[in-house]
Amino acid sequence: MSRIAARFAQIRSEKRGALIPFLEAWDPDGATSMAILRGMPEAGADLIEIGCPFTDPMADGPTIQLAGRRALDAGASMAHTLAMVREFRREDDATPIILMGYLNPILAYGPPRFCTDAAAAGVDGLIIVDLPTEEADLIAADAARNQLDIIRLVAPTTDDARLPHVLAGSSGFVYYVSITGITGTRTASGDELARAIPRIRAVTDLPVAVGFGVRSPAQAALATRHADAAVVASALIDTLAASLDADRHATAGTVRAVLDQVRTLAAAVRGG
C-alpha cells in the first residue's frame, strides 16, 4: 500500500480529519524550509505538500507568489527540492509527501528522469496545477511506472458531466479547489462544501482534500467535516513572512511560528 493510502486508512480508522500543511521549498532559504519540513509531522501534519517554486505561478495569489520569489532568490531548484525530500525520508518513512507546482520545471528536468528521481527521493504524489486531465498523458506513464500518484484537481467549475472524465484513472486522493479563484483569497462556505463534496464522492472512493482559502483552525475543521483533509498554505506562509526580518531573512522565531500554527490547525481537524 502506498504511503498516501496507508495514511488515509489510518485517519479513517481514527475517525478524524487530516491536515495537509504546505510549505514552499527554500522559502526563505534551504535550511529554514528544511527545519519546517522536518518539524511538521510532530506538529500534527498528516501529509505534507511542498511547493516547487516557479517564476510564473498563475494559479497563486500574492502570498505564494512572494514565497516563490523568495525561494528562487535563495537559489531554489527542482534538484534542491528533491534533496529536501531525500533528507526528510531519512527520519520519516510514513508521512506522505506531495509536490505541488507547475509543469515547466518538470519538463525542463525531463518527465521520465523527474519521476524516477522524485520517487527515489521519497515523493508520493504530484499536483501539477497547469496539467489538466486532457494533457496528463505527458507524464502519466512515467508517474505510474514510479508509483507516483498524480493528484487530480477538481474545481467548482468542474460540472457533473466532466467529473468522471477528470477523475478517470486518478489515484492517491482528490484535491478539491474549493473556490473559483487563486490561492489565499476567498474561502468556501459550509453550504458550498456540503454541495460540492458529495458530488465528488458520488464518482470516486478516493479521499478528498479541500484546499484554496482554508486559513483558520475553524475553517480547517469545517473543511474536514465535509471532506477527509484540509490543505492550508497561504495562512502558514503569511505567518512565515511576518516572522522575517527587514531583508526577508529568517529570524530565530520563524520555524517555531509556522510549526505552532500547524499544531493549532492539527488540533482543529482532530476535533480538539
Binding site: M58, P132, T133, E134, A155, T157, T158, V177
Partner: peptide, 20 residues
C-alpha cells in the same frame, strides 16, 4: 483536436479554467 500544432499548443491550464 487537442489544439496541437505538431507537438506545440495544447491546453495547459488549471482545472478551474478548463471548463471555460
Amino acid at each position: 483536436g487537442r489544439g496541437r500544432f505538431g507537438e506545440f499548443g495544447g491546453r495547459f491550464v488549471a482545472e478551474t479554467l478548463m471548463p471555460l
